[in-house]
Design a protein around this nucleic acid. Structure first.
Length: 123
DNA sequence: ATCTTGACTTGCC
DNA sequence: CGGCAAGCCAAGA
């Protein structure tokens, strides 16, 4: 588990997310190599990884996670502190904050070049 | 080993 | 982004 390559990649990716930017579970799963591993990403997040900015990982609606440590309150506060505007319905503007690693970062993380997706127009 | 759950996503209505 | 079903993958009972 600890030596699981998928898990290792997930941690590396989340760590690479800049302050004030966001990624989604499905996105991370895809980058890490599992097309439908979104749930597993969530599981990994809950399982461990201290020092990992999990608050920058949200679901595909830009909504806050269901069981974030400290509850949605804590999640919301953590995001606001990074400059992310969180709506009253606990949702953020993904079109504005969603982040994708640049080519250099992908190479550093050991991600394949074919991991480009068209998430631009969703929502 | 099977069954249930879950910090998810997508498709269809 | 209203609701519901299916898909996928791993952990826990």
């Amino acid at each position: 588990m600890r030596s699981d390559p998928f898990r290792t990649r997930v941690l590396a990716i989340v760590r690479a997310v800049p302050r004030g930017r966001l990624v989604t579970y499905g996105q991370v799963a895809l980058l890490a190599g599992k097309r439908h591993g979104a749930r597993e990403v969530g599981w990994i997040a809950h399982a461990g990884g201290e020092g990992i900015p999990w608050q920058r990982v949200v679901n595909r609606f830009g909504g806050l996670a269901a069981g974030f440590t400290g509850g949605r309150e804590g999640h919301r506060m953590a995001l606001r502190r990074e400059g992310v505007r969180v709506g009253v319905d606990d949702r953020v503007d993904l079109g504005r904050y969603l982040w994708w690693p640049d080519a250099r970062t992908r190479r550093r993380l050991g991600l394949g070049p074919g991991t480009n997706v068209c998430w631009e127009g969703n929502l």
